[in-house]
Each structure stands twice: as structure tokens, then as C-alpha cells.
């Protein structure tokens, strides 16, 4: 006779079954990772009824789990799907979600480890690995920029109090990216095309967008940009390399003078030009409200 499981054991057993990857036909696997038949596993804690076996009933939850995660993930990475092609995307998505099941109460964070995971597992991206990595970063940055905090920008009084040892914070919604490709243009085009096709045909991602991506020949070009939020809209703001380096240094917690030095490191730009650039950048950043007092946890990145 099998001993009844306590609640924690039962939940752990059921979770393992529910999160077991599906077969290629999107059904529950016949055996679990230990090679045990799932009919046996299910029968241990699920009751059959006159229409469904214990396996059938458990399979409903197994499939729902994957469909829910897959649809949430696909929503967040439509351009990546187009870059790697839908079939490869399916493999990529399932492998990623198996390696990184949700560790958050919200599905919003589902893609948070994708960039690191894909970097470590390039085979899932296929021949356009570098572009896939860039697109992943852009699409994840959009998720972050959409609803990250917007803190009170620096006031004039706070600016007046700044000194040589001061640190500045960068708004949590401002996402800084250094890319190998002009992936921002590409993602922009992809999303516009998808939106147009969705509204015209009432369908989701149009196949023509995917075919267009297949034909696309993007040349590598070092690209720096910020994805940020203003008036509740998302924007791409192209950055120059020194601008990016300065902002990245500020975000890492350096002092203002150190950030300015880091900004021009490795670049040969005449001093007067540097001065003019810095004044222009800081005017823009302050006008956009990007700068604030150094961030407390959990906002500091």
C-alpha cells in the first residue's frame, strides 16, 4: 500500500509532472525524467473518472502550463521569433523555459534570463546568433522600460548641491544597450509590420514579416542606444559611444568626474568638442528627467 503524500510532497510531485516538457505533438510525455511511466506517476495521486484516466487529467494541467508560458514568452519576443524562424524559436523557447521556469509571481519577468541563457547556448539561435542576441536585448529592454519605476528627477536644488565626489542615479526605466547590429531599426520595422498585418488580417505575427526577415541582410554596425519611457510611451534614443559609456558609468555608481572620464576613454576627441558634447548630453538627459539621486535597492542595477 502506498503511503499518502503530505501536502508539500504532493505539490512537489505534481509540479514536476505539470512542468515536464511536452512531446513534439504537445502531449504529456509517456515517462518522466527518471524513466518512470507517467501513467503510474499520475495514478499515485490523481483519481480517474469515467471519461478521463489519471494521466489524461494530469495532462490537461501539463499542457496548460506550457501553453501559458509559451504564449507569454512569445508575446515578449516577436522579433526574435522572426530572426531565428518560428520552428527554431519553438525549440529555443522550450529549452529556455525548461532551464529557466518562472521564479517570479509575475509572468512579466519570464524573459529576464534569456540574454544570458542564449549567450551560453548559441546553438538555439542558429546562424544569425549575433543578431538574435541583439534583438533579445532590445526586446527585453522594452519590457523593462515599459513599467520600471520613474523616480523624482533631480531638482535644481539637488543639482546646485552636486560636487566633485557626487554620484548620479539613472532612472530605472532607462535601458542602455550596446549592440553589434542596428537591431533597433530592425525591431522597429518588425513590430510595425506585425502590427500592420495584425490589424489588416486580424491575425497575429504575419508570415510575410518572417519571410521579409529571411531575406534581410543586415550589416554589422556598432550601435548604442537607450530605450526609455516618456509620457507613457517607449522611445529608442540613439546614443554615441562616449554618451553610452558615460551613462553606463553613472549607472554603475561611479562619481560624476569618473563617469565623464570613462565616457571618453579610448576615444580621441578634442577637448573643446568634449566639453560641448557633455553640456549637450546633460541638458538633454536632465530635460528628459533621466537623472536622479543614486538609486536605493532594489532599483540599483
Amino acid at each position: 500500500m502506498i503511503q499518502p503524500m503530505n501536502l508539500e510532497q504532493l505539490q512537489r510531485t505534481m509540479a514536476a509532472a505539470v512542468m515536464l516538457p511536452l512531446t513534439a505533438d504537445e502531449l504529456m510525455q509517456p515517462t518522466n525524467s527518471a524513466g518512470r511511466p507517467m501513467t503510474e506517476v499520475a495514478a499515485e495521486f490523481i483519481q480517474p473518472n469515467s471519461r478521463l484516466t489519471a494521466f489524461d487529467r494530469l495532462e490537461i494541467y501539463n499542457r496548460q502550463y506550457w501553453f501559458r508560458l509559451q504564449s507569454a514568452f512569445t508575446e515578449d519576443f516577436p522579433a526574435l521569433r522572426a530572426v531565428v524562424d518560428p520552428a527554431r524559436f519553438e525549440s529555443l523557447m522550450n529549452a529556455y523555459l525548461a532551464a529557466h521556469p518562472s521564479r517570479s509571481f509575475t509572468l512579466r519577468n519570464l524573459g529576464s534570463s534569456l540574454h544570458a541563457w542564449l549567450t551560453a547556448n548559441p546553438r538555439f539561435a542558429g546562424p544569425r546568433f549575433a543578431l538574435a542576441i541583439d534583438v533579445t536585448q532590445v526586446e527585453w529592454a522594452c519590457v523593462e522600460a515599459f513599467d520600471n519605476a520613474e523616480l523624482t528627477p533631480l531638482s535644481l536644488a539637488a543639482v546646485a548641491a552636486l560636487g566633485a565626489d557626487s554620484q548620479l542615479g539613472l532612472q530605472p526605466h532607462v535601458q542602455l544597450l550596446a549592440l553589434s547590429y542596428p537591431a533597433d531599426d530592425f525591431v522597429l520595422q518588425m513590430h510595425q509590420r506585425q502590427k500592420r498585418e495584425s490589424s489588416e488580417a486580424g491575425t497575429r505575427t504575419g508570415d510575410s514579416a518572417i519571410h521579409a526577415v529571411k531575406r534581410l541582410r543586415l550589416s554589422k554596425k556598432a550601435t548604442w542606444l537607450a530605450i526609455h519611457r516618456a509620457d507613457d510611451s517607449l522611445y529608442y534614443k540613439p546614443l554615441t559611444r562616449p554618451e553610452y559609456q558615460t551613462l553606463a558609468a553613472l549607472r554603475s555608481g561611479t562619481t560624476l568626474p569618473e563617469a565623464l572620464q570613462a565616457g571618453f576613454a579610448g576615444l580621441r576627441i578634442a577637448a573643446p568638442r568634449q566639453v560641448a558634447l557633455v553640456q549637450q548630453w546633460f541638458t538633454n538627459w536632465a530635460e528628459l528627467g533621466w537623472l536622479c539621486t543614486p538609486l536605493p535597492e532594489p532599483f540599483a542595477s
Binding site: N6, Q11, A15, V18, M19, Y61, Y65, R68, S102, R103
Partner: peptide
């Protein structure tokens, strides 16, 4: 219902066994 275990979330509304232990917890 339940839906998470050991910090991993199912994002589903999973049914409970109707036991006294589950009642208490």
C-alpha cells in the same frame, strides 16, 4: 488553490487535495 513550490511558479490555479492538512495550512 496552489501554484508554486520551492520558488518556482506554475502560473496556473492548481487544485488542492481536500485533506485536513490542506485545510489547516
Amino acid at each position: 488553490c496552489w501554484g508554486s513550490i520551492d520558488g518556482t511558479y506554475s502560473h496556473d490555479l492548481l487544485p488542492l487535495p481536500y485533506t485536513w492538512e490542506a485545510v489547516e495550512k
